[in-house]
């Protein structure tokens, strides 16, 4: 019961925490660069573009980690939530290239909010393998 009260996070769980955290740090930079760019700092647009590459790359990395979580821990929600964010980020990428600001700005806000929710979800509780918990419950 002692173990059950303080369940250990698996390496896979730590990997998910790490990638979601890095993802959130990267995405928070994007509105910063966009705002500085609109003050007339042209180089910030380059940083915004590099940031977009970094954010989407971490997003695809998160997909891989989320698949591992699904396989090893038998938990699907990280994968589904990650896919939603990655789809949004891909749309976001092309909306930005296309200058479709009506889509780019609100979608960016929504994507940051979704990542913050994921960040809270992965850090709030350890991610345990589903059978382990079910076994203990029995």
């Amino acid at each position: 019961m002692v173990i059950d009260a303080a369940p250990m996070t698996t390496p896979t769980g730590w990997a998910l925490r790490a990638v979601v955290s890095a993802h959130m740090v990267a995405i928070v930079g994007q509105p910063v660069f966009a705002g500085v760019y609109l003050t007339g700092d042209y180089d910030s647009l380059l940083w915004h573009a590099i940031g977009a590459d970094v954010v989407t790359s971490i997003g695809y990395l998160q997909v891989i980690v989320a698949i591992v979580v699904w396989v090893r821990l038998r938990r699907a929600w990280p994968f589904l939530a990650t896919m939603a964010v990655v789809v949004a980020e891909t749309v976001q990428y092309f909306a930005g290239l296309d200058g479709a600001l009506w889509l780019h700005i609100p979608l960016g806000v929504v994507t940051v909010a979704a990542l913050v929710v994921q960040f809270i979800a992965v850090w709030r509780r350890p991610l345990l393998r589903r059978e382990a918990r079910d076994a203990r419950a029995r």
Binding site: A100, W102, L103, L107, V110, A113, A114, V117
Partner: peptide, 24 residues
């Protein structure tokens, strides 16, 4: 909560699509 957030995101994006001047 997830459903509510999803609904909010969808509403926000469609409102933006409806209100925006396209072409600007």
């Amino acid at each position: 909560i997830g459903g509510a957030l999803g609904l909010m995101a969808a509403t926000g994006l469609s409102a933006s699509a409806a209100l925006a001047r396209r072409p600007s």
